[in-house]
């Protein structure tokens, strides 16, 4: 694994190719848009898609927690696909989250999908977490030092022969946008105005690969952007 270091507000942060952000100085691991129980949420609306998404998402998350051994795990909102998501979690998934809470302080940031604290789960719930010069929140406001999710950034690169589309981090010197981590979370192209507006002076997209990131300037990605 090769995480990429970036510097925001004088702090050194590592972008992990698995799609999480690691702040070594504070032993803080941030993850965005888990969208747990999206499967069951859609099932309630008539699409019986495979119910393994929470399990798959937690598998990956727990692996990362074991690797980094953070003091604090910050979920940047939309941790559940809807406000009743936590209540629908399978018993063993609840147990796995509870086990996590033994070694890690869990911080649930509220998101638009889950505007209420997760029912029956350990951890603290807040709308915004201020930590040193950084602000952890669900949806970026545009102020410097923000670490946020919500937008599910992805980027498509023209490679020889085909376009390759991947979830990505987007960063400049002031902020980082995290990719969505959930197994069923889709993506929004970084050329979308909602993402573009956060990076008026340009920035880089870091596409998730196997064991490494691929970095491109937003300017290059924008070449293909519709006028």
């Amino acid at each position: 694994m090769s995480a990429a270091p970036i510097h925001i507000a004088g702090e050194r942060l590592m972008l992990d190719p698995a799609g999480v952000l690691w702040w070594p100085a504070r032993r803080l691991l941030a993850v965005a848009d888990l969208h747990l129980e999206k499967g069951s949420s859609l099932a309630a609306r008539g699409a019986l898609i495979p119910p393994y998404d929470s399990r798959a998402t937690l598998d990956r998350l727990i692996t990362l927690v074991r690797r980094y051994r953070p003091a604090r795990l910050v979920a940047l909102g939309d941790s559940f696909h809807d406000r009743h998501g936590a209540a629908r979690l399978a018993r063993e998934d609840v147990a796995r989250i509870a086990a996590l809470a033994h070694s890690v302080e869990l911080v649930w940031i509220l998101g638009n999908h889950d505007p209420v604290p997760p029912e029956g789960l350990p951890g603290v719930t807040t709308a915004v977490l201020h930590e040193g010069p950084l602000t952890f929140l669900h949806d970026a406001t545009g102020r410097p030092g923000e670490i946020s999710g919500h937008l599910h950034p992805k980027a498509a690169i023209a490679t020889r022969g085909k376009w390759v589309s991947r979830a990505c981090f987007v960063a400049d010197s002031r902020r980082v946008l995290l990719p969505a981590f959930g197994a069923y979370a889709g993506g929004l192209d970084v050329r979308d105005p909602a993402i573009r507006a956060l990076f008026p002076r340009g920035g880089r997209a870091f596409l998730l690969g196997r064991g490494r990131l691929f970095s491109f300037t937003l300017a290059e990605l924008r070449e293909a952007e519709p006028a």
Partner: peptide, 12 residues
Amino acid sequence: VEPPPPPVHPVH
């Protein structure tokens, strides 16, 4: 093409 904004370090 334009270089990346200075404070952001490229991938290691």
